[in-house]
């Protein structure tokens, strides 16, 4: 099993918590309250490739401006970031873009997987007049920046699992590269052993955060 840390960023009420809950509990709450501080959850998925099980340790952060200064604490050690905007609110995309920039500037790990996610697709399927971010614009931006990109609906669940699966696949392919180059150096190690060694310190390791 591989363990990765994932953080969700984005403006308040774009649906970060809703996406996480769709992914973790396969449920949706119309009246979800705005997140205070941050919530920590985990969920595992199985990739088609090699039957690999990937466990995500997820930080669902608060989008409220007040908590912005705490964000580095959550993305600092992340392997993946899910940057969410609301496709019915165009200013939420610019907020997402500024998160992408911040991640690129502040996270040293060049293997950080960033996924741009436009949420509330169901609203535009009901009434296309509600859309205020064109899919082509967002897609173009994502391509330029080398981001994964999806439009999803936490409400209907459409594409939500695909987001996590595709992040998992990217992370796994990075990990395989790493393993290959490592085992070329060391020669004899079997896969299983290397897996454990190469993992970033699990979040459950008490030493990982206090130094």
């Amino acid at each position: 099993m591989l363990q990765f840390k994932l953080v969700l960023l984005g403006d308040s009420s774009v649906g970060k918590s809703s996406i996480v809950h769709r992914f973790v509990k396969d449920s949706f709450d119309e009246f979800r309250e705005s997140t205070i501080g941050a919530a920590f959850l985990s969920q595992s998925i199985k990739l088609d490739e090699d039957d690999t099980v990937i466990k995500f340790e997820i930080w669902d952060t608060a989008g409220q401006e007040r908590y912005k200064s705490l964000a580095p604490m959550y993305y600092r050690n992340a392997n993946a970031a899910l940057v969410v905007y609301d496709i019915t609110a165009s200013d939420s995309l610019s907020k997402a873009q500024s998160w992408v920039e911040e991640l690129k500037n502040k996270v040293a790990d060049d293997k950080l997987v960033i996924c741009l996610v436009g949420n509330k697709l169901d609203l535009c399927q009901e009434d296309s007049g509600k859309r205020s971010v064109e899919i082509s614009d967002a897609k173009q931006y994502a391509d330029e920046q080398g981001l994964l990109f999806f439009e999803v609906s936490a409400k209907t669940g459409e594409k939500v699992n695909d987001v996590f699966k595709s992040i998992g696949e990217s992370l796994y392919s990075y990990k395989k590269e790493e393993l290959l180059s490592k085992s070329e150096q060391n020669g004899t190690n079997t896969h299983g052993q290397v897996d454990l060694q190469l993992q970033k310190p699990a979040t459950s390791d008490p030493t990982s955060c206090c130094t």
Binding site: H21, V24, D29, E33, I36, G37, A39, F40, L70
Partner: peptide
Amino acid sequence: CLIFNRFNNQDNNQELWVP
């Protein structure tokens, strides 16, 4: 108040970190 008014409908598979 915060815990039981605010988070009372939180499900218990998440942990919170609240300033």
